[in-house]
Nucleic acid binder design. Sequence first.
DNA 1: CATGATACCTCGGTAAGCAAGGTATGATGC
DNA 2: GCATCATACCTTGCTTACCGAGGTATCATG
Lengths: 124, 124
Amino acid sequence: MSVDRRDMADELGKWEVQVRKGGLGLAVLAILWPGRLYGLEILRQLESQAGMSIPEGTIYPLLSRMKAEGLVDAEWVEADAGHPRKYYRLTDPGRARVREMTQSWRAFAQGLERLLAPIEGDIS
Amino acid sequence: MSVDRRDMADELGKWEVQVRKGGLGLAVLAILWPGRLYGLEILRQLESQAGMSIPEGTIYPLLSRMKAEGLVDAEWVEADAGHPRKYYRLTDPGRARVREMTQSWRAFAQGLERLLAPIEGDIS
DNA sequence: CATGATACCTCGGTAAGCAAGGTATGATGC
DNA sequence: GCATCATACCTTGCTTACCGAGGTATCATG
């Protein structure tokens, strides 16, 4: 009934999530470019290489979708120790897609950067 | 029951949508930076300045949310001719938010660009 | 054989894009 | 006057997708 004081605080914390939504799929495909990786390894490399911290609840459904689309394929590999790992690798259509998405991404980022240009003049 | 042949074709066309999802809110706030605009005008300027074509069904709910969060405020203005227009303008908290989001955006874009760097070596 | 570490996966709530369809205002043609 | 068109704003319903929480499986260790 009263004012939602909740909103203003929560929304601030949500922006980092919103920001990366669009590029997340590209980031995952891109990190597979050099070679195969297993699930948790993808998360760790996204964190260390690109500063993105993605939860498991996001990555596994995403990888499944990509596999269903034929962009990646997966292969179980026995580890020397511990739980077996499922390694993901880009397929040829996957590589083609990464290149397409990279172009789309850059077009978008450049368009947006054009809008942001006037803003940075304002260094308080 | 049979194979979804639908997917491979449709998903290709959907990427441009996915790509811009994360930055769309920022784009809308950024385009309001120089001054007030009304709804359809926002769409036209996003198209001409940043190459983004956003449908009405996306922009009006988005503007409503931003107004509810106090990032913009709105004002009805009688046009010389035709339907009255609802002009949106950044509030002070809205301006602060644009600056924050711009920083988040650039951090994300730089992180992603780091992942994309190896890819562009491959000009077939 | 219990505990911990590592790894993969799923369920359910929620957010958000957007196509389609609707409403409102004023100008223009007849 | 009235139908039609152009402009502009808004809503509904469908769908996609993030992700927190909780679950399962494998192996090592004490």
